[in-house]
């Protein structure tokens, strides 16, 4: 949204003030702009750019953290292609992302539309955001305790209605879906709010016109809300998919990659390799592979879903 307002300012300013030559104006702003940008640029360089470059370098080395790195060429990448655990971690992560994003987007969209069409209550918006305000690790541990097969309150409730208890986090088949849904619970309010902001950008007049034409709520949702919401949804999807791929904390405090390799998601595998097995070079190679996958995915999403265009014009 800030980008839109900036663009509008930029477009309207020269029109209003034609006496000042454009080039001189720009040159005058530049030093100030640089001063404002500098702290952020330094931070970006130190915390993002340098680590990224260093990771790329380390991915070509054998580096145990406690001894200097040794150049090994593409050896780590060769190993990566033959490592069944890498492919397993990729598969497990994709399974997590599909369940997490699939469910989360549908639920959040539903919540946002309900907030938009039914209630404008700030209280409800606040309550929806509550899970997001609790730290990831706390959410994970509380759900872990609640879902325990023998002592968890959820399973006691299941038994009470006559069902058999389920070892949600402990069973190979249910561990990843459980972790994915726990994180849906935490993030849905936040995602709903992002979508809700997009909904508010849709002019009320469109709905009023549709209502005059006798359109029903479901029709309006399908014909008006969804198409006009597309740019927002794309942005939300790109952000949440990238975030979802980075699943780590929930796994680290609950299943720790197990049972067997059922929840050894890619970030957890990287962490184990780097900090438990001191195999930093190989861990860096997986990081680079993940970086390439995520960059490709984000580009593809933006391209395919035409994020820059709006249907409002």
């Amino acid at each position: 949204m800030s980008a839109i307002t900036e663009r509008q300012h930029g477009a309207s300013a020269p029109r209003r003030d034609t006496s000042v030559p454009r080039r001189r104006r720009r040159a005058g702003d530049l030093p100030v702009a640089l001063v404002f940008l500098l702290p952020a640029a330094v931070g970006f360089g130190v915390f993002y750019l340098w680590p990224t470059l260093r990771t790329m370098y380390l991915s070509f080395t054998d580096y145990s953290l406690l001894a200097p790195p040794e150049w090994v060429g593409a050896e780590n990448y060769r190993r990566l292609f033959q490592d069944p655990l890498f492919w397993n971690s990729l598969r497990v992560t994709v399974e997590y992302v599909v369940i997490n994003i699939g469910v989360q987007t549908v639920v959040a969209l539903g919540l946002a539309v309900l907030m938009h069409r039914l209630t404008r209550s700030g209280l409800i918006r606040g309550v929806l955001l509550l899970p997001y305000l609790v730290a990831n690790v706390v959410v994970a541990l509380i759900w872990y305790t609640m879902l325990d097969a023998q002592l968890g309150i959820v399973n006691r409730a299941l038994e009470w209605v006559g069902l058999d208890p389920v070892a949600f986090f402990g069973e190979t088949a249910t561990a990843i879906p459980t972790i994915a849904l726990v994180n849906v619970w935490r993030h849905m309010g936040y995602t709903a709010l992002l979508i809700f902001a997009g909904l508010q950008a849709i002019p009320r007049t469109v709905y009023e016109a549709a209502a005059t034409d006798g359109a029903s709520e479901p029709t309006m949702f399908r014909r008006i809300t969804l198409p006009l919401l597309r740019p927002t949804l794309v942005l939300v999807l790109v952000l949440t998919v990238i975030g979802s791929f980075q699943i780590f904390d929930t796994v680290a405090v609950t299943t720790k990659g197990g049972p067997v390799n059922a929840t050894r998601v890619i970030y957890y595998y990287i962490y184990e390799l780097a900090f438990q097995r001191f195999d930093f070079g190989y861990a860096a190679a997986i990081c680079v592979a993940l970086f390439a996958i995520l960059a490709g995915l984000a580009l593809m999403q933006l391209k395919m879903l035409r994020a820059g265009d709006t249907d409002l014009d």
Partner: peptide, 10 residues
């Protein structure tokens, strides 16, 4: 208990 039960939370 099965491994699944042992790993389910407690």
């Amino acid at each position: 208990p099965s491994l699944a039960i042992a790993r389910s939370g407690t």
